[in-house]
């Protein structure tokens, strides 16, 4: 059962938030944003999350709230915002009409590029560079989605309550890494390696991570095969796996 509010948090912070990484990883994304003044888009969702994406010098950054955005996109409900992501809702800005060209000519191609990586054509994955970028972006999306589920989804909240305080290292060998910071039953995702983790879960390769994300292999089986290494407070990882199960439900 998918909860629309949780899905809105995932769509905003985990999916649109991955634009940060897209701009870092794919020069084509950065190129869409060069030679232009800094600009920001705020997403204000009634009964849900709000955040602002700022584009500056070919980079993108997401921050909480919509207080200082150039373009403001209001949504009457979480369902309406989720409709933006699945293409059934067209937003109308409440602020920044003069920047509508940016929305159409730059932001939309950027999100189309993100969608290309997030829902890739199997043929595109044959290209090594595409494969690495696509898998890395999926990793960041999933890392942030874990926190949204832990903090908002009914089952996720129950599961997160069993996670003791501390940092979890969540990483791919030779690839991206994230810190999942657990405190008082809530999780915050930091898109950087953990310095002193209390528990660690590492995938041995990008290929394995991809197969796990695509549901082709199982994490428990991969641990036995030595393809996933875990150490530390394994109870944290056990509950992390429960959250990962929920991520698959929301991002399917």
């Amino acid at each position: 059962m998918v909860d629309q509010k949780t899905l809105a948090y995932i769509n905003l912070y985990a999916v649109l938030g991955t634009l940060e990484n897209l701009c870092e990883l794919d020069p084509a994304a950065g190129a869409l944003l060069t030679n232009r003044k800094p600009i920001s888009i705020g997403f204000a969702i009634k009964g849900g999350p709000s955040a602002t994406l700022t584009f500056k010098n070919g980079k993108c950054r997401m921050e909480q709230g919509v207080a200082e955005c150039d373009i403001k996109l209001p949504f009457a409900s979480c369902e309406k915002f989720n409709g933006l992501l699945d293409g059934t809702v067209t937003p109308i800005p409440s602020k920044g009409f003069q920047h509508i060209k940016f929305l159409l000519k730059e932001f939309t191609p950027l999100t189309d590029l993100l969608a290309k990586y997030m829902r890739p054509d199997p043929a595109d994955l044959e290209d090594e560079d595409f494969f690495v970028i696509s898998t890395s972006l999926m990793f960041y999306t999933i890392s942030v989605a874990i926190a949204q589920i832990a903090n908002n989804d009914k089952v996720g909240i129950f599961t997160a309550n069993y996670i003791v305080d501390g940092d979890i290292e969540f990483a791919i060998e030779g690839g991206p890494a994230a810190t999942l910071r657990a405190k008082n039953g809530r999780i915050l995702t930091l898109k950087c390696p953990a310095k002193n983790p209390r528990a660690s879960m590492k995938f041995s390769s990008m290929e394995l991570a991809r197969d796990l994300f695509d549901g082709k292999v199982n994490a428990v089986a991969s641990i036995g095969a030595g393809k996933i290494s875990m150490k530390g407070m394994v109870s944290m990882l056990d509950n992390l796996n429960r959250l990962l199960d929920r991520v698959a439900l929301y991002l399917a």
Binding site: V220, I223, G224
Partner: peptide, 12 residues
Amino acid sequence: LGPAEGCFIPVE
């Protein structure tokens, strides 16, 4: 009895 639930760390 398995390496995952049995926490064989490291499995080797």
